[in-house]
Simulated scan of single mutants.
Amino acid sequence: MPDSSARRIGIALTERQKIAWLRLIRSDNVGPATFRDLINHCGSAENALAMLPELSARGGSTRAIRIASASEAERELEIARRQNAQFIGIGEPDYPPALRQIEAAPPLVAAKGDLSTATRPSVGIVGSRNASIAGAKFAAAIARDCGRAGYAITSGLARGIDAAAHRASLDTGTIAVLAGGLDRPYPPENFSLLDEITAGSGLAVSEMPFGWEPRARDFPRRNRLISGISLGLVVVEAAERSGSLITARLAADFGRLVFAVPGSPLDPRCHGTNGLLKQGAIVTTGASDVLDALAPLSDLDRFQNTVIEEPGRGSTLLPPDDDDRTRIISALSPTPVDIDDIIRHTGVAAASVYLILLELDLAGRLHRHPGGMVSLAMED
């Protein structure tokens, strides 16, 4: 059984820092990976905000970059307070520990409910929205037994398997990850379930702004968070080309254990899970399969902070010269390449390469891909 006591590792952001972080992540062309690079280069979110116009212009932007205002950030913080929610920074004690270590982890998540649940080891459970009675009962049994063993149960609040897992772990602690803002849950029939989760020992989290209506492309982002928060992911009744298989692939990419429940080859809802088993997922016929495999991995102390502000630091690196910038841009194409390959191919110093890529990113001229790959954005 894991030690389910909360591990509060980290440094709390001041109100001023949180406003700056929120402004930075809500500004144009600043995603999680760019946010991290900006903190590393500038030392703090406040420094980064001041440097955004210059960095964007050096990257070739022909128009001023939109920077979220302090009043916009303060308004979002006030909405969170009215919703009995709050924003948690990646370096703060209540940020989900395992989520810190995934590629491009969100620098801020909005959270509502029992924050101690976020710091416990977690098992993710996902599966078909159109679940069978047997599948829903099995998911509930896994959730109940893993919850009693000290794990929080993480899922996506969808109908079917997700809802069954959440309901079975209401008493022991469950985390609902939303694709939209915390005030825009989906689907509507699970509104009351979300209320039960946040009123008890559970938690709702989202990386999207309040008021954000979930779109189809937001659900893969939600799936990344489910995989990142969880130490292992159990897939129950997943069809081929389903969102659950995307979640499973992300979990494997993050080094998480993937568990799959075998099903009838005649049931299309089991084609995805049976395929996962062929690819090496752990055969799961009961909670003991999950608990035994996760037991050696449940020490969350290994997930340390990854983004720490050093406001007085800033960068002493001089702006790259035009020749270096030209070499980097010439080496890029619409085909994703590894940054290490760019460094080797161009002979430009690594620090300068990263800074030039940051400039291009802020100018909207760079695409980032999984695995740290980058490509040149095609001009309109």
Score class of each variant (00 low, 15 high):
residue 260 A to F: 08
residue 111 A to E: 01
residue 117 T to W: 06
residue 115 L to Y: 05
residue 84 N to Y: 15
residue 373 M to I: 02
residue 218 D to F: 11
residue 129 R to W: 03
residue 43 G to K: 05
residue 59 G to M: 06
residue 221 R to K: 14
residue 115 L to M: 12
residue 254 F to G: 04
residue 151 Y to G: 00
residue 18 K to H: 09
residue 376 L to W: 03
residue 249 R to E: 13
residue 118 A to L: 15
residue 233 L to M: 12
residue 361 D to Q: 10
residue 245 L to W: 03
residue 124 G to K: 00
residue 47 N to V: 02
residue 63 R to A: 15
residue 235 V to S: 03
residue 26 R to W: 04
residue 117 T to Y: 05
residue 219 F to G: 07
residue 145 D to E: 15
residue 346 T to V: 10
residue 327 R to G: 08
residue 196 E to C: 08
residue 261 V to K: 00
residue 24 L to P: 05
residue 81 R to L: 10
residue 10 G to R: 07
residue 288 S to D: 15
residue 324 D to E: 12
residue 221 R to D: 08
residue 28 D to L: 14
residue 127 G to V: 03
residue 72 E to P: 04
residue 323 D to Q: 14
residue 85 A to W: 02
residue 232 G to M: 09
residue 362 L to C: 00
residue 80 A to M: 11
residue 378 M to V: 15
residue 52 L to D: 01
residue 360 L to Y: 07
residue 141 A to L: 11
residue 190 N to A: 05
residue 345 H to W: 10
residue 187 P to N: 09
residue 309 E to Q: 09
residue 43 G to Y: 06
residue 323 D to S: 14
residue 190 N to V: 02
residue 305 N to S: 13
residue 27 S to I: 05
residue 115 L to K: 03
residue 275 G to D: 10
residue 328 I to C: 09
residue 178 L to Y: 03
residue 81 R to Q: 14
residue 201 S to M: 12
residue 39 I to R: 00
residue 37 D to T: 05
residue 31 G to W: 07
residue 237 E to Y: 04
residue 16 R to Q: 06
residue 112 K to I: 15
residue 257 L to Y: 08
residue 117 T to K: 08
residue 214 P to G: 07
residue 41 H to V: 03
residue 301 D to K: 13
residue 7 R to I: 15
residue 139 A to I: 10
residue 252 A to M: 11
residue 308 I to C: 07
residue 287 A to E: 01
residue 270 C to F: 04
residue 90 I to W: 01
residue 298 S to D: 13
residue 59 G to S: 10
residue 166 H to S: 02
residue 323 D to E: 14
residue 28 D to R: 12
residue 343 I to S: 07
residue 156 G to R: 00
residue 263 G to F: 01
residue 144 R to F: 11
residue 227 S to I: 04
residue 329 I to C: 11
residue 194 L to A: 01
residue 2 P to R: 09
residue 192 S to R: 13
residue 349 A to P: 01
residue 287 A to P: 02
residue 357 L to F: 03
residue 288 S to V: 13
residue 52 L to N: 01
residue 313 R to D: 11
residue 157 L to G: 05
residue 285 T to S: 13
residue 258 V to C: 04
residue 13 L to G: 06
residue 37 D to W: 12
residue 150 G to Q: 07
residue 184 R to T: 13
residue 246 I to T: 02
residue 68 A to K: 09
residue 66 R to S: 14
residue 341 D to H: 12
residue 1 M to L: 15
residue 328 I to K: 02
residue 43 G to I: 02
residue 302 R to V: 14
residue 276 L to S: 05
residue 67 I to G: 08
residue 250 L to N: 02
residue 320 P to K: 06
residue 297 L to I: 04
residue 31 G to M: 10
residue 20 A to P: 06
residue 252 A to N: 10
residue 273 T to M: 05
residue 39 I to Q: 00
residue 302 R to A: 11
residue 110 A to P: 00
residue 96 P to G: 07
residue 355 L to G: 00
residue 13 L to A: 14
residue 252 A to F: 13
residue 284 T to Q: 06
residue 351 A to I: 09
residue 54 E to A: 14
residue 97 P to C: 08
residue 191 F to E: 14
residue 33 A to G: 05
residue 190 N to F: 07
residue 360 L to G: 07
residue 201 S to N: 15
residue 311 P to Y: 11
residue 257 L to D: 13
